[in-house]
Design a protein around this nucleic acid. Sequence first.
RNA 1: GGAGGCGUCGCCUAGUCCGGUCUAUGGCGCCGCACUGCUAAUGCGGUUUGGGCUUUACCGUCCAUCGAGGGUUCAAAUCCCUCCGCCUCCGCCA
Length: 428
Amino acid sequence: MIDLRLLREDPDRVRASQRARGEDVGLVDALLSADERRRSSGTRFDELRAEQKQLGRLIPKAQGEEKTSLLARAKELADAVKAADTEQQQAAEEAQELLLRLGNIVHPDAPVGGEEDFVVLEQIGTPRDFAAEGFTPRDHLELGELLGAIDTDRGAKVSGSRFYYLTGVGALLELALVNAAIAQATAAGFTPVLTPNLVRPAAMAGTGYLGQVEDDVYYLEKDDLYLVGTSEVPLAAYHMDEIIDASRLPLRYAGFSACYRREAGSYGKDTRGIFRVHQFDKVEMFVYTAPEEAEAEHQRLLAWEKQWLSSLELPFQVIELASGDLGASASRKFDCEAWVPTQGKYRELTSTSNTTQFQARRLNIRQRDEQGTRPLATLNGTLCAVTRTIVALLENHQLPDGSVRVPEVLRPFLGGRDLLEPTAAPAK
RNA sequence: GGAGGCGUCGCCUAGUCCGGUCUAUGGCGCCGCACUGCUAAUGCGGUUUGGGCUUUACCGUCCAUCGAGGGUUCAAAUCCCUCCGCCUCCGCCA
C-alpha cells in the first residue's frame, strides 16, 4: 500500500500513477473522503472515551445517591462510546479496503503504456545463425525427448496439461542449475532459504497477489491456504510484523521453492513443452533494504540476473516494462528475455521488481534507526526459473545430432560432463 | 485426531484465582546526563507500537495497544467465547 500522507498531500501524483497503470482514478477521491471520515470519527471516539475513563475513576469512591446518578451517566456514555467506536471502525475499514486496491506509485522513468510498450535497454550475446551452420534447430521438447530429459505425455496423463516429468539428464540438469544459481547467490552474500510453499491469506495479500491476479493462484479451501506462485511470497512475509534494526540491512535472501500457477486466461498460449507450466522450481532473490537504497539495489539485482544468464552463455535482452504491465506491487520492473531460436524471439526468463515500501506497508515490516521507525523497501528478482532456463539452454546450445553442449558454469554440478547426448532407447 | 499447559511494552518477570489510582511491577540490556586520571562502579532521567490534535519538525496532549478478534460490565491484563501460535503427553504416520 502507499503512504496515506502522500495521498493527502499530493493526490495528483497518485491520480497520475493510477492513470498510467490504466486503473481506477476515482479510488483516490473515495479514499480521501473515507480517510477524512476515519479521522473525524476517531477524534470523537477519543474524546468520549477520555470522558468515560475519568468518570469510571469516580465510581468506586462514590456512595448512595451520588453513585446511582454516576452509574446512570456512565451507562449513557458507554453507549455513546460504543456507537462512536463502531463508526470509526467502519470508516477505517472502508479506508483500508480502498487503500489496498491502490497500486504502487509508478516510477517516473517507467515508460507509460501497456504490455506492448516496453523499452529494450540492451542486448547481450548474439543469437546463433543455424542456417549458416547448416541445420534446422529442434525445439526444446523434441530435444528433451531425444535426451530422455522431458516427458510431457506422462505429465498430462498423471496431472493434466501443463504438467511434466523431468527424467534422467533433465532431472540432473535442474539440480545443476539450482546448485549453480545458489552458488552464485551465496557468493554474492545471499542467505539461501527453503521456504514453505503453502501460505496463509495474510502473506498472499500482503505481497499483492490477491488483487487482479487472484485467478492465477491455487487455493486450498479446506485449509484456507494458498500455494505460492513464487518464493517471493514466503520471503516477503518472513519478516511480517517485525521491526528490523537498520544496521542489519540490507537482508538478502535466495529462496528456492516450487511455484504454482493456474495460468488462467492463457489458454492456447505456449501449449507445447515446458515453457508455460502449472508447476516449476525457481531460485529467487529477495532483498529488504532502506528506501533510499532501493533504486541502487534494483540495479544490483538486475546485474546479478545478467551475470547468471551470461554465465549460461545465453543471448538475451533486457527490457523495462511499461506502467500498465507492472502488477500491483512494482513501481518499476526489468525483465531479461532469452533468445528462443525455434520461436525466433526473446522470451522472459527473469524479472526484477522494485516494490519500494508497498509490500512492507501491507506486511507491517519496518526498520528502526535514529530517525525512528518506518516501512523499509523490498525488492525481488528471479535468479533461475528452472523450466524456462532449460528451454533456453537446450535450444541455444544444441548440436546437429540433437546433443546439447553444457556451459562451463554447470559442468561442476553435472559430474564434469560437457555434453548431453541422446539416449539409445528413449523412455517411451 | 484426542488430552492438557502456556502467550504481559527488546529479553526475563510481577499482576490474572477474588474486575476499580494497573496511568502495567521489578531486573537485564540499551540511550542521555551527572560524577570520575581512563575504564569500571555509582546516581538521576529515559526506553512498546500505532493513530489523532497541535503547523506534518520540536515540545505537548488525548486515545488505542497485555497473542488476535468478539462478548459481559459503569469499568477487563484480570470473567466468558472463538481463533492463532508455542510446549507436553497419547494415537497415527514419512
